[in-house]
Amino acid sequence: MHEQDQTVAGGTLESPETAADNVYAAIDLGTNNCRMLIARPQRGGGERGFSQPEQFRVVDSYSRITRLGEGLAGSGLLSRSAMDRTVEALKRCVDKMQRRGVTHARNVATEACRRAANCDHFLERVRAEVGLELEIISADEEARLALAGCSALLEEDRPRALVFDIGGGSTELLWVRLCDKGIDQVEGFASLPLGVVTVSEDCGGGDLTRRLYEAVAEHVANLLGPFEAAHDIGAAIARGEVQMLGTSGTVTTLGGIALDLPRYNRFKVDGLRLDFKTVFEISHKLSLMSHASRAAIPCIGRQRADLVLAGCAILEAICTVWPVGSLRIADRGVREGLLLELMDRDRSRAEGETA
């Protein structure tokens, strides 16, 4: 797959021999969020899924809800206000990259940019106003990077995994066979054109009635049918071979609510296991609340109160079609996958030059 490795203002591209001094950044620009991690390589660990001998230590991060895909489902275009918000967020990312002396970066955009007819105009604005090159990646590469970033949370006692990512504009599914040394084989992939933003907008807003909520869940379940038929996941579940791993704002939000956190805490949620009974109970409770009541929940807040129900409906469909019984939550994904691949590439280069 094509990788875009670039210098940024304030940083110099260093040779592989100085890899220990390198600072890496990854930006994941989605339909709803702009997220960035800045990290340094760190040796040791040996977590499952990190085939690289180098893991990383995060030195800075950034996350902002920009709603780049707001209105996209109806118009097919990125709105001026959405682009303005996103450009400002990307400026903050570049400021942090400069201050941290980033030497290597890969900056990707996903579903909103894949779908927007005026995406070229947006990319030019980012290039001119921010000084940043964004790379639009395909849905399958997005899913592959998410798996690379979160596969350390997969457990070796079950040979199969259903991994999903409920995004703002789409939902990705991966059917994975666990192999030796943490190198997993993807045996099936699907991308549904439904995410928390698109579903919410299609339904006229976030305050879904219970009837409409159930209709969305049923519709998503029907869309999952061909993936089930192609891979016979239900039979593997019946044999006790399947684990489920979810990476998205929906599952992390439910994790925070399940723990009754007064403020969202990534370190408490990442890796948490939720049984389906808890998932259904929280989702049902949220679907009966008013917008204001959901916004008052610390792990939801005002900016996500109109989106969380759509995510819960998609999640409920996934859990209903594939009754694994529990899922593990990953507060990691594309950004981590990008960082690991950048670091691994430089390590391989350095080893090749010293061999």
Rank of each mutant, 00 (worst) to 15 (best):
S326P: 00
E341L: 13
G168M: 05
I257G: 02
S79L: 10
P41N: 05
L147M: 12
V324T: 08
T12Q: 13
T252I: 02
Q185V: 13
E218V: 00
L13N: 08
R328G: 06
E142G: 10
L134F: 01
S293T: 08
S51F: 14
P193D: 05
T253E: 06
R125Q: 11
D84Q: 11
S326D: 14
Q55V: 00
G11R: 12
R67K: 11
R210V: 04
D275L: 09
E135V: 03
P53F: 10
A139S: 14
A39P: 07
L178R: 14
L68N: 11
L315R: 05
H291A: 02
K91R: 14
G45E: 08
R40Y: 09
G333I: 01
T253F: 03
Q42V: 07
L192N: 07
L338T: 10
G225H: 08
A313I: 00
E17F: 13
L194W: 06
V242T: 09
E187T: 06
R335N: 05
T31G: 04
Q98G: 03
I137D: 03
C34R: 03
A161P: 07
S51D: 12
G131N: 09
V324G: 01
T252Y: 06
D275Y: 10
T354A: 14
I282W: 02
L13K: 13
S15W: 04
I329N: 03
L245F: 12
S81T: 13
I137H: 07
G76Q: 10
L274Y: 12
L134Q: 02
F267N: 14
R266L: 06
R127M: 07
I318N: 02
I329M: 10
L208C: 01
D184N: 14
D21K: 15
R210Q: 05
V108L: 07
V59I: 15
E353R: 15
A39R: 01
L338G: 10
L208K: 03
E241Y: 12
E155S: 14
S138W: 11
Q6R: 15
L224Y: 02
M83F: 01
T198G: 03
L259H: 02
E172Y: 10
P298T: 07
S138N: 09
A238K: 13
G249Y: 09
T247W: 00
P41R: 08
S293G: 02
Y213H: 01
L192R: 07
N265Y: 08
R347C: 04
G71C: 09
D331V: 05
G11W: 14
R57L: 05
N33D: 06
G352E: 15
V108S: 05
A310T: 11
S138T: 15
L208D: 01
V23W: 00
G249R: 07
C319H: 11
Q98Y: 00
V199P: 08
A117D: 12
K96A: 13
R263F: 12
